[in-house]
């Protein structure tokens, strides 16, 4: 059986800058896979290449064995890949409700939209209280919840999360990681998680890849990596 998502020898450029130098990775149905690495390693570039914002110059992105290369982002979403971008991408002057509606943009069935929204509000009760508030006026943590909730409205087969804990207070970081675990266990969402917080990411994930300047340097199960001396030294800061 092929992986749900697979990258094969992907090379991505920004003009002349060679940002991804042959990335290969797999995410299987039902897994949480994390991609860790320091600033500028190419984590966000990897996610952008998967979701069609960027197109690889060489290599392939496959969803259940089907090539996704060179199709625009809105088609990638249609195929079932949800992407919560770095910096959250909340529409600041749309209300919380309108932001969520945008998440369900491709869906026509009003009852289904309402059902999914109810699901989002169950996971994030704070959003329900703020439906009429413009997205830009939410706190950082609330914006992150909105961004994740909005991606959930798509009910994607795989969700790409780009540094969901960035800039959040420790308690909120914990809450976000709990949500990620719940999404995976209760709703069966497959997740590819990009994180700088390697400790927390490895604790929630099944498997992990380490990215260094555009190349995968280490990969394995989360457990293995948690006890790998190179990881401990470079990313767990012990």
């Amino acid at each position: 059986m092929s992986a749900l998502l697979e990258l094969r020898e992907v090379h991505t450029y920004y003009g002349q800058i060679h940002a991804l130098k042959g990335i290969s990775l797999e995410v299987n149905q039902g897994e949480i896979v994390t991609l860790i690495g320091s600033n500028g390693a190419g984590k966000s570039t990897t996610l952008r290449t998967i979701s069609g914002i960027l197109h690889p110059r060489r290599g392939e992105v496959l969803l259940q064995g089907k090539p996704m290369t060179n199709i625009p982002p809105h088609k990638v979403v249609e195929a079932g890949i949800g992407h919560v971008p770095e910096g959250r991408g909340v529409f600041p002057r749309l209300t919380v409700l309108e932001n969520l509606e945008m998440g369900a943009y491709l869906l026509r069935d009003k009852h289904e939209i309402a059902r999914r929204m109810e699901n989002v509000f169950t996971l994030f009760p704070r959003l329900r209280e703020r439906v009429r508030q413009p997205g830009g006026t939410l706190s950082g943590g609330e914006q992150q919840m909105l961004a994740i909730g909005r991606a959930l409205m798509q009910q994607p087969r795989i969700m790409l999360l780009d540094e969901p804990s960035m800039g959040l207070a420790p308690l909120l970081v914990e809450e976000i990681f709990n949500i990620i675990r719940r999404l995976n266990q209760e709703q069966g969402t497959t997740i590819l998680l990009v994180e700088q917080n390697a400790q927390a990411a490895l604790q929630v994930a099944n498997r992990a890849y380490v990215l260094e300047t555009g190349r995968i340097s280490i990969s394995g199960t989360a457990d293995e990596l948690l006890h790998d001396s190179r990881i401990i030294e470079a990313y767990l800061g012990l």
Partner: peptide, 13 residues
Amino acid sequence: QDQRTAGLMGINV
């Protein structure tokens, strides 16, 4: 407001 994120919503920009 945000063309790139709009695309990620499935909106054909």
